[in-house]
């Protein structure tokens, strides 16, 4: 296993870069970060629409979330491959396809997490804010969301780790991310699939495990510093 790491680590880390396109773990992380960066605001909007007093808005978004949660991410990726070029009028790379599919998929899941957080805030908080004369939006922005988002921070970090894992599906549409790179390595080595895919698993494990542990630690720090009951 160490042999493989010693020989092929640049490919696993950055793909063909700098002689070719960036790939490997670097691309995996880029896709995941982009996915999160776009899905977070989208999911916030969906969650707000879900809890809004406007009936049709909450109905439509509820159905959207239900449908997205009902189909496999892979199916969504194939849809994105077909739909996104039609929407923007030119062909797109596998990279863009993957990011778009991940954003929509994660937004649906994150929206549910945020909605649950909003609904878990005791109604007394809303009443206290409204009885001082603040508007619905001000109450949302200053009183409900700061508490709700902090409360669901652990679930949101779990979603981020999930996103990193889900980028591996880029392999199926030949996005040059970590799993795809590992498969290339496997094709070069040819005789040691157990070791190559073992290394691949270990790399994912180190990244995801250390990330989730440090995010959990960070969350505890924030909570403790606020001494919140």
């Amino acid at each position: 296993m160490l042999e493989i790491v010693r020989e092929y680590w640049p490919m696993l880390l950055v793909g063909q870069y700098p002689n070719g396109p960036l790939g490997g773990l670097a691309l995996t992380l880029i896709v995941a970060v982009l996915g999160l960066a776009f899905s977070l605001p989208l999911s916030l909007l969906i969650a707000l629409a879900r809890v809004s007093p406007v009936k049709w808005l909450s109905f439509v978004t509820a159905q959207f979330v239900r449908v997205i949660r009902g189909i496999p991410l892979l199916m969504l990726i194939f849809w994105a491959y077909f739909v996104v070029p039609k929407l923007i009028g030119s062909s797109v790379s596998g990279f863009t396809t993957l990011v778009c599919a991940l954003v929509v998929y994660q937004a649906a899941y994150l929206a549910e997490v945020i909605r649950a957080g909003i609904e878990a805030i005791p109604s007394g908080q809303i009443e206290a804010s409204r009885s001082m004369g603040s508007s619905y939006m001000l109450t949302m922005r200053k009183v409900i969301l700061p508490q709700a988002l902090l409360n669901v921070l652990p679930s949101m970090t779990n979603q981020f780790v999930s996103t990193i894992k889900e980028t591996s599906l880029g392999y199926v549409i030949s996005v040059n991310e970590l799993t795809f790179s590992a498969n290339q390595v496997n094709n070069l080595v040819l005789t040691q699939p157990l070791q190559v895919f073992g290394v691949l698993a270990v790399v994912y494990f180190i990244v995801c495990f250390s990330l989730s542990r440090s995010l959990r630690w960070l969350d505890m720090r924030i909570r403790r510093s606020r001494a919140m009951a």
Partner: peptide, 16 residues
Amino acid sequence: RQKIGFVFQQFNLFPH
């Protein structure tokens, strides 16, 4: 509501 102060049984201070 800005002209009416209201105090709740459960305080309802904003914990954050």
